[in-house]
Design a protein around this nucleic acid. Structure first.
Lengths: 235, 235
DNA sequence: CGACACGTTGATATCCCTCAAGGGGAGTGG
DNA sequence: CCACTCCCCTTGAGGGATATCAACGTGTCG
């Protein structure tokens, strides 16, 4: 039952067994991608969506000056490019951060779902809008918060989201980003991201080494980040 | 026929007469707001969506340090807070930039629409996703582009969107933002936004005075902004 | 062992912010 | 009609945050 994983981060409203079966039936196949490979190229016509089963995926845009902005991180259970169903293409690139396994769901299968179940449609719609809410929170972070807060915020979000899907061990979790990635997600250079990490490490608030993050003082981290999980719509 | 205005910026696919009538029937009433008033407060339970009929609305988040990030601007025809239907609340504030007139569409009316027409549902869904694509483009701008490019980008987007709905006169258009607003939309201070405007004005690329923008060199403006309208999904 | 990617740190440069002052226009009240 | 106020725009000076450039260490993998 691959589709059980969908929305594990959003326990309510719960998918009924029948809805889950419908979703399951929409899955055409699974597919694997290597770490750091491209899953979907921007502006290509699409006929499938992909549900992330294992690994971490990310979305980004490159600018002409050679900078990259990471737009979102995706964990197992995320319907990474569901928005390609109404939009028919993506205006950004989707890549695999680690090796990933994905379930392929053809657009016409989703179309059949939407004709069958308006409740399931609404849940799918909602999941794309929670992604959009995260986009807006990142926009706020990058546009209105200091460097150290942006870095702290990224770790707060990662911790909460990973905990929802059982991806944490106490205050520790795997977070396989390089410091370059960290910079590209927060609008900083890798050098400065490194310095912001030091400012979190030295007072024992957060350590991050070799792709493993460990939170030493959750409350302080949240304060620095101005983190409030209301934008994740976990309720 | 108030609902004719919906998606005027997105001519394809075209709403059928019947779909338009269905949407029209979903409108409960119209309502007006003064300039600079709050339309929807963040995190309040919502039971209505609002379609913007006249004026300019905007969405924003305030940080604890007293900074404000403007997340989006909305023009007539935009379904400003349609995402409140699946989400039931908004994680940001919606305000009126100018005096606005809005059509109120109750959530349960939208629910009936989604049970009736999966095609209309998809169009509504799509419109929320185009908003999300704009959120991501702004994120890229704020995170990865220089100040002058961010300001230029904002004017490029405004011009293209306003032209779609007949809101431009040649290369001139009303754009009733203060320079403080401009800064809050681009992640700059108003002082620096002012200086970026000067850098666009002096070579004759763009003038902006008293809420009226006038483009002198569209191609240069696009180059500076790295503007490409593909993220607006106008096709 | 060599190549390479990543992390760390220092020195310097630049962008953008902060603070401050003054000007102009619109609205208001005398 | 004028004075006053307030908001917004504009400009200058100085400072802080972040970028750039550079060097070196470390671990991994072929």
């Amino acid at each position: 039952m691959l589709s059980r994983i969908f929305l594990t981060a959003h326990p309510t409203p719960r998918l009924s067994d029948e809805e889950c079966a419908q979703l399951e039936a929409a899955i055409a196949r699974t597919v694997n991608f290597d770490a750091r490979s491209i899953i979907v190229r921007e502006n290509q016509p699409l006929t499938n969506c992909t549900l992330l089963l294992a690994g971490i995926a990310y979305r980004y845009k490159d600018t002409e000056e050679g900078k990259r902005q990471i737009l979102a991180l995706h964990y197992p259970g995320d319907f990474v490019d569901l928005h390609s169903y109404p939009l028919k293409r993506l205006e950004h690139t989707v890549g695999a951060l680690t090796a990933v396994q994905m379930a392929v769901v053809p657009h016409d299968a989703i179309c059949r779902l939407t004709e069958t179940s308006s409740r399931l449609t609404e849940l799918l719609w909602k999941s794309t809008l929670v992604d959009a809410a995260m986009n807006r929170e990142w926009l706020t972070s990058v546009g209105a918060r200091a460097g150290v807060a942006r870095v702290a915020h990224l770790f707060c979000e990662a911790y909460v989201r990973l905990r929802m899907i059982g991806g944490t061990r106490g205050w520790t979790f795997d977070f396989p980003l390089t410091q370059l990635d960290l910079g590209e997600a927060t609008g900083l250079t890798s050098v400065h991201a490194n310095r912001m990490l030091r400012r979190l490490r030295e007072p024992g608030i957060l350590t991050f080494r070799n792709g493993v993050a460990s939170i030493g003082d959750w409350q302080k981290l949240c304060e620095i980040a101005e983190f409030d999980d209301n934008y994740l719509f976990l309720d």
